[in-house]
């Protein structure tokens, strides 16, 4: 304890520059933090109240969140039926947590997802089991954001593995097609890909086929993340020692057996941090579907703020949604770190 004090003093006031920095930080803290805390907590309105009450109190108006949280979280989904997206979201999160715990074999996991996804679709869409039919353009809010991110990532996986293997292929035609796809998609912004999907998919399909806006956005997100995921997996592939491939070939395994049973599983282990970063990026990027008109979490918040009574409390609404995004991203990054550690441990 007695040794810690001089050390701390050295770190805070070791040099003139450092002392000035410390003083500036303390000053900034004293000037900015108390008013901020006053705004967010002390003067804030926490209970359900009219906008005028908030203005009278002067602080943050959490009543806005109280008033609009159903709209923010579930978008325009019929009010009386909103237990359905809630149940579907809970189911999806449970499935993710169960798969992430690594306690179940892959057959159980796949079967669980097959049943779970069917249940989620039935819950959301209705039209069966006495549930009222809800068209996809009414889906929205947090469930939509989570579903888009999950299915974008899972859907992109098979394509990404093929692209990553193709990019390393000795077959020149295969290689150039994969390189062209990956580099083209990575060279353009997601917004243009979403625009392309929403304007051009109807033109590229036979006249009678109708694809709804949600599926179009999902196709765009899947193709987009496949290109990035392919690069992450390729990075992992490069870390797998060449001897593994040669040994598998010597055992008489075919190309696909070698790749899918020997090389790719090891590559994925190396690629975990990159994949987790991509998933965090994808989770945040689902917010762009709002630009092509899907009511995801962010667009639902904007719509809630469209109410002229509450317009001036934009900051409160955005802080609430930001916290939701931060919580999800935080979970993904923590999980990826623990997974990395666990797999490292398995190997040694």
């Amino acid at each position: 304890m007695s040794a810690a004090v001089p050390k701390l003093r050295q770190r805070l006031f070791g040099s003139v520059g450092n002392s000035l920095l410390t003083l500036a930080m303390v000053a900034a803290f004293v000037i900015y933090v108390p008013p901020l805390l006053r705004w967010a907590f002390i003067d804030a309105t926490w209970v359900a109240a009219a906008p005028d009450v908030c203005r009278a109190n002067g602080g943050a108006c959490w009543s806005f969140v109280h008033e609009k949280y159903r709209l923010i979280l579930f978008g325009r989904y019929p009010y009386a039926e909103q237990w359905r997206p809630l149940a579907a979201l809970a189911l999806a999160i449970m499935l993710v947590l169960a798969s992430c715990s690594l306690r179940f074999g892959w057959r159980t996991v796949v079967a669980g997802w097959a049943i779970g996804v069917t249940a989620i679709i039935v819950l959301m869409r209705g039209g069966a089991l006495g549930l009222e039919y809800v068209p996809t353009d009414l889906w929205g809010g947090l469930p939509l954001t989570v579903f888009l991110a999950l299915s974008g990532m899972v859907g992109a996986f098979p394509l990404a593995v093929v692209l990553a293997l193709g990019r390393r292929s000795r077959l020149r035609v295969v290689k150039s097609i994969c390189v062209a796809f990956i580099e083209m998609v990575r060279g353009v912004p997601l917004v243009t890909v979403l625009f392309m999907a929403s304007f051009m998919i109807p033109l590229f399909l036979p006249g009678k086929v109708q694809v709804d806006a949600l599926l179009r956005a999902l196709a765009a997100i899947t193709l987009f993340s496949a290109a990035y995921l392919a690069e992450a997996i390729r990075g992992g592939l490069q870390a797998v020692p060449e001897g593994q491939e040669q040994a598998a070939e010597a055992l008489g395994l075919t190309y696909w057996q070698t790749s899918l049973l020997v090389v790719v599983p090891q590559a994925l282990r190396h690629a975990i941090p990159a994949i987790a970063n991509l998933f965090i990026g994808l989770f945040k990027d689902t917010s762009l579907v709002g630009i092509v008109g899907l009511t995801d979490l962010l667009l639902a918040t904007k719509q809630a703020l469209g109410d002229p009574q509450w317009r001036s409390f934009a900051l409160e609404g955005y802080i609430f949604v930001a916290l939701i995004y931060v919580a999800f991203c935080f979970f993904i990054s923590r999980y990826s770190r623990s997974l990395e550690r666990r797999l490292q441990h398995d190997r040694s």
């Binding site: 701390l8 770190r11 805070l12 920095l21 410390t22 930080m25 945040k284 990027d285 917010s287 709002g290």
Partner: peptide
């Protein structure tokens, strides 16, 4: 930085800003 006031501030900034969508 080794300054115990500066470092956590920078880390918090990075973590908060990175995990909120740009559009938001």
């Amino acid at each position: 930085s080794r300054n115990p006031l500066v470092k956590p501030l920078a880390t918090t900034y990075v973590e908060l800003v990175r995990n909120v969508p740009l559009l938001l």
